[in-house]
């Protein structure tokens, strides 16, 4: 499924992954987590990979593989390696609390696996996996 890389389409992206997760038998709590992780991933792509450009697309696929829900998002924007983003300090007090990095932290916490790869000329691929049960 291809979506324009715009925040206005986050609702549709959440619906798309949510419906598949529901059909695959995930609980309401897990579906919320999956939708939140997908939203954070897509928001990140829209904000960072396509930061200075409009008209970019985000290709999202979602399916069950060996009892695991696999969500992948492909974009042709700038490489943005999430593994280099530092974990936010969640113990910091209000004045020191970081604004950035929270979305990626949530993705990692909500999903069982998060992978990222960027290949010159072939765009960026983010894959997130949630095991059932």
């Amino acid at each position: 499924m291809i979506f324009p890389a715009q925040f206005e389409f986050l609702d549709e992206i959440r619906r798309f992954v949510g419906e598949l997760a529901r059909k695959s038998g995930f609980s309401d709590k897990e579906i919320y987590s999956i939708q939140l992780a997908a939203d954070e991933a897509a928001s990140n792509i829209i904000e960072h990979a396509y930061q200075d450009s409009s008209g970019g697309m985000l290709e999202c696929s979602c399916g069950m593989e060996a009892g695991r829900l696999v969500i992948s998002m492909h974009d042709d924007g700038k490489p943005f390696d999430i593994s280099r983003v530092k974990e936010p300090n969640l113990k910091a007090d209000l004045s020191d609390r970081q604004i950035g990095g929270l979305g990626i932290y949530l993705m990692r916490k909500l999903m069982d696996e998060v992978h990222y790869e960027s290949k010159p000329g072939r765009g960026n691929l983010l894959t997130m996996i949630k095991r059932k049960g």
Partner: peptide, 19 residues
């Protein structure tokens, strides 16, 4: 119904101003 980290950031920014 739903709030992502974008909403959390809005809360954090205003909490700083309020406190």
């Amino acid at each position: 119904e739903y709030m992502s980290s974008a909403g959390f950031r809005a809360l954090l920014g205003s909490q700083r101003a309020c406190r």
